[in-house]
Simulated scan of single mutants.
Amino acid sequence: MGRQLATALLRASSLEPRHINISTRRPETLGGLFLDQRWVSAVLYSLLNMCTAQKLGAGKTLRLLNGLFETNTFTYHSLVNSPSASDLNSPDDLFPWMSLVDAQTKDTPLTDLVLRDKGLRDCFSVMYYNVFSNLAEG
């Protein structure tokens, strides 16, 4: 699961593993990991866009995201606004392409979800930390 997230993050950004510095200190000694909810939303929307680019239907995309985060939090309405969600008539329909600029500059259903759901934020933080710790190890 961690390797999948790392691969998705690296594909969705211009980062290369050699540009990432990993601290060897335990997270609890660093005072925690802060990830802005708009940044988290943009990363999650980039995963959604990758699923759309691969022609993965909305139903399979939701199962993939919920499986990745071991939750049932992600729904059509938690990812896209109501008019767009109502356009999804079948689980085989594709999610619309999401603007990553909008994800970081405007309120979206996903930024609201990330803000409200501490468990999701904690899960994302743990996955993020583990992925980059594993990359540092090699």
Rank of each mutant, 00 (worst) to 15 (best):
L33Y: 02
T24K: 13
I22V: 14
F74P: 14
L48R: 04
L47N: 00
R121P: 15
R38A: 06
T111K: 03
P91C: 01
A42G: 13
S82H: 13
D117A: 07
L65I: 10
R116G: 02
A12Q: 15
N66K: 07
L9E: 02
Y129A: 02
S125G: 14
H19V: 00
T108N: 09
V101P: 08
N66W: 09
N89L: 13
G32R: 10
R26S: 08
L47R: 00
T105I: 02
Q54W: 10
H19N: 09
P17C: 00
L64K: 03
L44K: 01
N81F: 04
Y129W: 13
H19I: 00
W39P: 05
N134L: 05
D122Y: 04
T111N: 05
L94D: 06
L115H: 15
V40E: 03
K55I: 00
S90R: 14
T71F: 04
T52G: 04
I22D: 00
L115S: 14
Y76C: 07
L48Y: 04
G119Y: 06
V40F: 01
R121A: 01
L65D: 04
K60P: 14
T24Q: 12
K60L: 11
Q104S: 11
L100F: 11
D107E: 12
L48E: 04
M1P: 15
L35H: 05
T24I: 08
L94R: 05
V80M: 04
N66P: 14
Q104N: 06
A6E: 11
L120M: 07
T105Y: 10
R63K: 07
D102L: 03
F132D: 00
V43M: 06
L5I: 15
A85D: 12
W39D: 12
N81C: 11
G2R: 06
A12P: 15
K118P: 14
I22R: 13
T105S: 13
C123A: 12
T61L: 01
D107W: 13
P17T: 00
T75P: 02
P83H: 01
R63H: 09
K55D: 12
D93Y: 14
T61N: 01
G67W: 13
N72M: 04
V80C: 03
T24N: 10
T108I: 03
T73F: 02
K118M: 05
V43W: 10
A136L: 05
L65T: 11
R25E: 01
T71G: 08
A42L: 02
C51K: 04
T61Y: 01
N21D: 01
T61K: 02
R63M: 04
F69P: 12
G59A: 03
G119S: 08
A8W: 04
L110H: 03
K60D: 15
S13I: 05
L135C: 11
D92E: 11
Y76G: 02
M1F: 12
K55W: 08
L68D: 07
D102P: 14
N66I: 07
P109N: 03
D112H: 15
A85H: 08
F34S: 11
Y128V: 02
G119K: 10
F69S: 00
G32N: 05
T29C: 03
